[in-house]
């Protein structure tokens, strides 16, 4: 599986990962080589098999919706890069 520069840029865009021209070339080669190693999976007959998404036999965990103490807003915002009026401050979403 040989990726193209365009594919690498497209994946980076999907992941919202800024990427330099030098990184495009490096990741194109490295990801292609990693994906080549993944091709071995295509040899496996998985017909009729269910996928496994996790390994414990638990499902649908419910609990009572009880109120309890939560962190104060000041602590929640203590790591925020920018804040105003007890809220996170972000760049304009609609321009």
């Amino acid at each position: 599986m040989q990726l193209t520069d365009e594919e690498v840029r497209h994946i980076a865009l999907l992941a919202r990962l800024g990427i330099s021209d030098a990184e495009v070339e490096k990741f194109r080669n490295q990801l292609s080589s990693i994906l080549e190693n993944m091709d071995i999976l295509q040899q496996v007959d998985t017909s009729g098999l269910e996928p496994t998404s996790q390994s414990v036999a638990l499902e649908n965990i419910y609990r009572e919706d009880e109120t309890g103490p939560s962190l104060p807003v000041t602590e929640v915002l203590s790591n925020a890069p920018a804040q105003e009026d007890n809220s996170l401050k972000v760049n304009a979403v609609l321009e």
């Binding site: 993944m38 999976l41 496996v44 998985t46 098999l49 996928p51 496994t52």
Partner: peptide, 11 residues
């Protein structure tokens, strides 16, 4: 890729 790997996980 992903679904295939999840099935191999079963195996």
């Amino acid at each position: 890729y992903y679904l295939k790997a999840q099935k191999v996980r079963t195996l």
